[in-house]
Amino acid sequence: MVDTLAEPPPPLVQVRNLTMHFPVHGGLLQRRVGAIKAVDGVTFDIHRGETLGLVGESGCGKTTCGRAILRLYELTGGSVHIGGTNIAEATPDQLRKLRPAMQMVFQDPLASLNPRMTVASIIGEPLKEHTRLDKTERLARIHELMDQVGLNHDFANRYPHEFSGGQRQRIGIARALALNPQFIVCDEPIAALDVSIQAQVVNLLEDLQDRLGLTYLFISHDLSMVRHIADRVAVMYLGRIVELAPRESLYSDPRHPYTRALLSAVPEPDPVLAARRNRMILTGDVPSPAHPPEGCNFCTRCPQVMDICTTIDPEFREVEPGRFVACHLLTEPKNNQQGSLL
């Protein structure tokens, strides 16, 4: 551990310039002809006990980012420190030791649960692999976890397809909690659930955070849920983070034109308001992550685009304490300090 006397505790997760590219093959010989820049240089921190919301358009790289942080992919570039260890360079042995502390709740619960395993064996699997608990102790722990997520013990011997969507999601959460992790990446944990069950799952995640001090990266496209659960929110567009801010400031005073467009497009659960709403519909197509535009990634669709935006990539910098934006509109000429995160 580094000497941190008299300083605030370092963030649990430090992501620097994280890059994840997937090769594109083409031609007769299926040679590598390019890359899908799914995540293209993102930098952020997540503090202990905090929930960082990660939002953005479908295909902008959220899942890839979450998976890369847990090193479920080999990174193309950048570093990810979790609790001081650089995950990007950890050896398989180090990784194995770290795995219990970092978990993921996957976007698609059904696809991530083995249909041939009972719920007890799904939740018990990480216990078997990473602990020395004997059979009885394991079962006790499985029951304890099922209690925590509000699943009846009687369901322990059922198979995933016999559960409702919300229950399946909770199986995934119980499995993620089995080894007392410090950090959980929740990838769209509530997208497929009806509102009441969404609320149930979100309340559960909050209770667990209060009780166990968990840290979450909460990936979602549901801006109203993110507003509810996140302490800070990062907005992603085409592989980059365009804005990162504390929840309240982001929602009341969005700075990046993309964040503004996103917020104005949230559907209103009231037909009278919905008819009156003045939506800012973005025009133009989303560029391909294989061929991002010159300059700012958002320049092809930005309603406030300027000349500079089509040539120079705006720096992701702190425009006021705690608020980071990558946009030329916010670059004051007098500002000469290095806009660094650190």
């Binding site: 976007q107 496209h221 996103l262 973005l282």
Partner: peptide, 17 residues
């Protein structure tokens, strides 16, 4: 059947249009 659960609001709006 739940055709836009995984879509963010902007793309959802585009699909609805």
């Amino acid at each position: 059947d739940e055709p836009t659960t995984a879509l963010d609001v902007t793309i959802q709006a585009q699909i609805l249009e």
